[in-house]
């Protein structure tokens, strides 16, 4: 290609410049500024910000709500990882290896909630949990388990576990597809050899499928953890607003409340930093833990 250095530079600038500029202003600057803001006390109303050093972080460590929000977030992380991985793995295996004729139907249906608005999901599940007319309670009554009926989302102990099912419902399809992709790329000869050796299907699953799709399993788990720590507050905000009496408050919803409802923007930014640090640390630990079991073929 015949082109001068200057032309080349101009083209490169044309390709990268505008994007990098808007990306810096809208993504990078806010992150850095978020860190900066966390050292200030600021109501957002006045131009004056008061530098308070680490006071917001001190407040963070002494705030009794914070440990609860962290615990709630990790409760959701663990239950979602278990729920989604168990079901998604079963569905992925069933749809690829059980020779089910209508497999494409299930694949299409199970994935659909992944592209539904979380607002719609939240509202629908509020109705499913509705104490009077909801599906869960009327179902329990229908099979004679009246004493198990609950006000679900209104109950201090049940509200948080009740959020797990909608999250699993909404997330499962993507991971099912990821795992299906992994399973389909496992060489058939492995299973045939195992069959000849008399391995049961259960053994084949643990000895062949799981080790072979371990990369997809790892990615799925990490992806669920990141999206939960960074995004669990959205379903919380829609379904319970953190209530009843902060029994479902997670880090993100607490940040939103502190910053945009009570106008403690500096404190909100400190909570944001905490979310960032916790999610990066969790992912780092997971990478380490999940990396060990690797098979070489």
């Amino acid at each position: 290609m015949v082109q001068s250095k200057k032309q080349r530079f101009l083209f490169l600038a044309f390709c990268l410049g505008p994007t990098l500029l808007v990306f810096s202003v809208i993504t990078l600057y806010p992150l850095v500024n978020g860190l900066y803001l966390s050292f200030f006390e600021w109501s957002g109303m006045s131009i004056e910000k008061t530098f308070v050093g680490l006071a917001n972080y001190e407040k963070l460590f002494n705030d009794p709500i914070i440990p609860q929000t962290i615990w709630h977030d990790y409760f959701l992380v663990v239950t979602k990882v278990i729920g989604i991985m168990v079901l998604a793995t079963y569905f992925a295996v069933a749809l690829t290896q059980f020779r089910i004729k209508e497999a494409p139907f299930y694949r299409i249906v199970f994935f659909f909630p992944n592209i539904m608005s979380v607002v719609i999901i939240g509202i629908l599940w509020q109705f499913i949990y509705n104490p009077d007319a909801g599906l869960v309670n009327s179902g329990l009554e229908a099979i004679g388990l009246e004493e198990w009926t609950q006000p679900w989302l209104g109950d201090l102990n049940w509200a948080l576990p009740s959020l797990v099912l909608p999250s699993v419902w909404a997330g499962i399809g993507l991971f099912m597809l990821l795992l299906m992709g992994g399973i389909m790329s496992v060489p058939k000869s492995l299973y045939e050899a195992a069959d000849l050796d008399g391995a049961t299907e259960w053994q084949q699953f643990w000895r062949i499928t799981v080790p072979m799709i371990w990369p997809q399993i790892r990615v799925s788990i990490i992806y669920i953890v990141i999206t939960t720590l960074n995004g669990s507050f959205i379903i919380v905000q829609i379904m319970t607003r953190g209530g009843p009496s902060s029994s479902t408050e997670v880090m993100g919803s607490y940040l939103y409340e502190q910053a945009f409802e009570q106008f403690h923007f500096g404190y909100g930014a400190a909570i944001g930093m905490m979310i960032l640090v916790l999610s990066l640390a969790t992912v780092a630990v997971l990478q380490l833990v999940l990396r060990r079991e690797r098979v070489e073929l």
Binding site: P30, N33, G34, L37, G252, Y256, I275
Partner: peptide
């Protein structure tokens, strides 16, 4: 940047 929680950026972005 895909791994970073967006919430943190929303406060500065708002202002």
């Amino acid at each position: 940047s895909m791994m970073i929680p967006m919430v943190l950026g929303w406060i500065p972005l708002f202002f």
